[in-house]
Nucleic acid binder design. Structure first.
Lengths: 210, 210
DNA sequence: TAGATTGTTAATCGATTAACAATC
DNA sequence: TAGATTGTTAATCGATTAACAATC
């Protein structure tokens, strides 16, 4: 059974909320609490859980610890995942130095670029020549890549990633990558997100002053 | 009429595709071409356009230039929008130096932080103390903010932004901001996006080998 | 004109929500 | 037990797609 994206996003959100509740000392939680934390309805929370066979206790809700474990299981987060960053420009560099992934079991294994000035084989996260990518991916068993190269290079580099055996690409270039069906692509487009906000700001204003 | 988010995202995508077609010298385009470029159906493209009263020519499709102009109009992109970056950490810094927004009429007007070591009033994008935020927003008429502060500070800083008159926040903190109904929030959560990819990689594998 | 493409309607599809019996 | 919460079904809601008449 493969759930849709919105459902998986919610599952991640529940997990984050649960981790926060756990750090505050909570031992159990009700669908109502989670709904509140995630900004959805309680029915939605229970429905999502039932889709994955996650059950609680009628009357006593869910045990926080067990629930986190079950969600991690569904999300495939019970092992460490290696990710490479391709393109060591502004965005790429920020991601290389970003420490926020570690707690979630995601490890930035290396970065790749074509500019020799960027190379740094001995850094905490090594920056290597693009030519070494295929071998590195094979040797280290990397499945995930973050694509942060200039727009015009994105499609071409994405194809290299696919050939190298990468299974999931988080794409920062504002284009639709064309790849075979066994590479999953997620897109992050900051300008598009800001455009969205701009639209809803002005649309909201119009809706409120007709 | 206020469209849903998915529809606006598509509109931005069409616009990007059109800009690329325009730079390649194309003068007109069919719903079919745009559907292909955006990864949706042709019916969807025409439906989206009809929602905003954007019409083409039966038989001759749409004029590229006019279409771009009409989409920009809908998205509110016919004027320059100022955005501030709050939090000059790794992500914040990358955004401050990011040049990709300019072409789209989005101008990073300033950044704000609480750490004096980050202050730089004379930079291309000035980095100012957080205390100056409210005055700056009022003086410069800023409506958009990118929130890139540590998770624990996010809610508090978001409230400051709301009080200062910010109408749209692009939130990089992995929490659900709680703000009044006239602040629009967009969330970017890199770890969640990677988790998504991880899920679909393994779910896809399971689906293919039952 | 003949042919191709739009604009729009109606049908389909899927996701969310409400409601409530089951039950701890 | 009585009461509260789950798990699930059925109803609702909304978005996408197919289809085709209108028409350039």
């Amino acid at each position: 059974m493969v759930a849709n994206r919105a459902c998986i996003v919610r599952l991640s959100t529940y997990k984050n909320a649960l981790l926060r509740l756990q750090s505050l000392g909570f031992k159990k939680v009700f669908s109502d609490n989670l709904a509140d934390a995630a900004g959805v309805t309680a029915a939605q929370v229970r429905k999502d859980f039932s889709m994955f066979g996650i059950t609680g206790n009628r009357r006593a809700g869910y045990r926080v610890e067990g629930l986190i474990e079950q969600i991690r299981e569904v999300l495939g987060k019970n092992k460490i995942h290696k990710v490479i960053v391709v393109g060591a420009g502004r965005i790429g560099e920020a991601l290389i130095r970003y420490r926020g992934f570690e707690a979630g079991g995601i490890q930035v294994a290396a970065a790749f670029d074509i500019d020799p000035a960027k190379f740094d084989a001995d850094g905490a996260v090594p920056v290597l020549p693009l030519e070494q990518l295929t071998d590195f991916v094979a040797e280290q068993g990397v499945e995930l890549a973050i694509l942060a190269v200039p727009d015009i290079a994105a499609q071409q580099v994405a194809q290299i990633l696919a050939s190298a055996g990468i299974r999931g690409i988080l794409n920062f270039a504002p284009i639709q990558l064309r790849l075979g069906p066994d590479v999953v692509v997620g897109n992050i487009n900051l300008e598009l997100e800001l455009e969205n906000l701009i639209y809803f700001i002005s649309a909201g204003r119009k809706a409120r002053t007709p």
